[in-house]
Design a protein around this nucleic acid. Structure first.
Length: 243
DNA sequence: ACAATATCCTGCGAGC
DNA sequence: TGCTCGCAGGATATTG
């Protein structure tokens, strides 16, 4: 499931490939990311947005397959393939991308500790895991990385914000940065469908500590990783060393 | 205003 | 072996 590191990986690769090319006679001037949305900017101020949701793929010069939903052809003959098995993903042209900014909370990798503390203070009763995944609260984190961040911070996913110590808040914040950056370095996590813009799998799967590790040994304390439901999402954690 | 939950979709894997 | 059924989850809408 593409989260911030996966979309960022695609952005960096795509930028090198398509900036300067023309699509529908409009010149591509940049490739950005906001939250989990990939944004291709054109010289006339318009933009093409993509959300990959759960199973979307954006592959430069990929080949058409059974789940190809759209093909974007550039004027030089190269193309961008949008695949999506489950059809949750979308793309759309917009005249101006000005309104995108306020749809989301601060970017996860651009949130200072002070800002993080401030926005947490406004949500004392929220459970920490769903809150980290709330894009209006902080942008870019999904189910995989929220589990990994909370494991690294030794915080149990059901904890309410108001019960967190300042040390725990600091640990969550610093691990947001640490884990997302490490995941970007490894071009994301290919748990199932995700591939990068070159069609290659990400390498971060092997570094996951708790996500999808139910019943396995906790790599930190030797406890047993547990899976619970929070809302309709699964949360993985070690009940022995995450408190 | 905030918190919790149902909903969309379809391939896959567990279980019989 | 082959079938059924439940599960996976991002974001939005709806309900409490």
């Amino acid at each position: 499931m593409p989260e911030l590191p996966e979309v960022e990986t695609i952005r960096r690769q795509l930028r090198k490939k398509i900036v300067g090319k023309k699509l529908d006679n409009k010149k591509i001037v940049g490739v950005r990311r906001r939250a989990k949305i990939l944004i291709i900017d054109f010289n006339d101020g318009s933009s093409l947005l993509f959300h990959l949701k759960l199973t979307g793929q954006l592959i430069f010069n990929g080949e058409k397959g059974p789940y190809t939903r759209q093909i974007f052809k550039f004027s030089d003959g190269t193309q961008l393939i949008f695949n999506d098995v489950r059809k949750f993903g979308w793309w759309k042209y917009i005249k101006s991308s000005k309104d995108i900014e306020k749809t989301f909370g601060p970017e996860a990798l651009e949130t200072s500790l002070n800002v993080f503390q401030d926005i947490l203070q406004k949500r004392p009763n929220a459970k920490i895991k769903p809150l980290l995944m709330d894009q209006k609260f902080i942008a870019g984190i999904g189910n995989i990385y929220s589990d990994e961040i909370l494991f690294a911070a030794k915080v149990q996913p059901l904890r309410r914000v108001k019960t967190l110590t300042s040390g725990e808040i600091k640990a969550i914040w610093s691990n947001i940065g640490k884990i997302l950056k490490e995941a970007i370095k490894n071009r994301g996590t290919s748990e199932r469908d995700y591939v990068d813009a070159l069609g290659k799998k990400g390498d971060y799967l092997k570094y996951l500590k708790v996500y999808r590790k139910e019943g396995q040994k906790c790599p930190r304390c030797g406890g047993t990783v547990k899976r619970i439901k929070i809302g309709s999402r699964s949360a993985h954690f070690c009940p022995r060393c995450q408190r």
